[in-house]
Amino acid sequence: MTSRLLDKLNMLDRRWIFLAMAMAVLAPILLQIGSDETPSPPTIKLFDEIERLPEGSRILMAMDFDPTSAAELYPMALAFTRHCGVRRHKLFFVTIWPTGKPMIESTIKGVIQADFGSGDRPYVYGVDYVNLGYLAGDAVAISQMSSDIRKARPQDARGTNLDQLPIMTGVTSVKDMALIVNASAGFPGGKEWVQYAATPQNIPIAVGCTGVQSTQLFPYYPDQLLGLVTGIRGAIEYETMLAAKYPNPYADRSKRPAFLRGGAQRWAHRLMIGLIVLGNGIHLANRYRRTLHP
């Protein structure tokens, strides 16, 4: 009986595992099970820094990601932008990924225009925020920006000359930023911002990165990185802090896309742990069987 079960498990079609994974992710989505997170020190440091900076500080929002990593980084980008918006910082959006421009436009539309576009003091394009768009040249574009933004790109994403925008008055390079906040999916991204701008120019930088990239960035923290927000867990942590500090409106579920992905994450992790344990159980049982019947 046990031996037959072991044979069945040895021969298990991988499509059953695929189905189990699909179910583990789908069920929490349909049941709308979310998950909160306890903030970790590298995330708290970025949150505190954005809180600490005086109103109107210049923050460079480098959005170096595309749809392949948007699941982790787009919620992060929304949370960072919301926080900066609440604190009324001046935002400079830029990307060095050709596929990253729509991510900036989506963030601007979803946060700046939706949450801060009206009211007593609406965010005005060219005064409170600017979209510098895509800068070609990969890491070299970062090097150009750290010496002269206008050399990297004389116009904004709309084609307006940078000198015509009030927000650009007094801004020559990245050195004029109080903080760089980077949402990074790989190359070029967080590592290059540290190497080409933050470390040589001594500019404070915090990176929100994918889980895959995070281990490459750990050695930079805390000496070369002010904060490090890791994967979807980091995004949930940031949303949790934002919801705690500004419950109206950021405690609302519709403003917390990462929270809603947390439930699926939890169940899929449980499945992965179960699969690793079961796989090793089968491995040990096979070894035991081989010792019994060599």
Partner: peptide
């Protein structure tokens, strides 16, 4: 970008979730 590029590339990467699960079961042995 919105309806061809974005869904295809992100789903291609999402496939890895399934293969990682399969690898965890079959190849991740002590």
């Amino acid at each position: 970008y919105q309806y061809l590029f974005s869904p295809i590339v992100s789903t291609m990467f999402a496939l890895l979730a399934f293969y990682v699960a399969s690898a965890a079961f079959r190849a991740f042995r002590a």
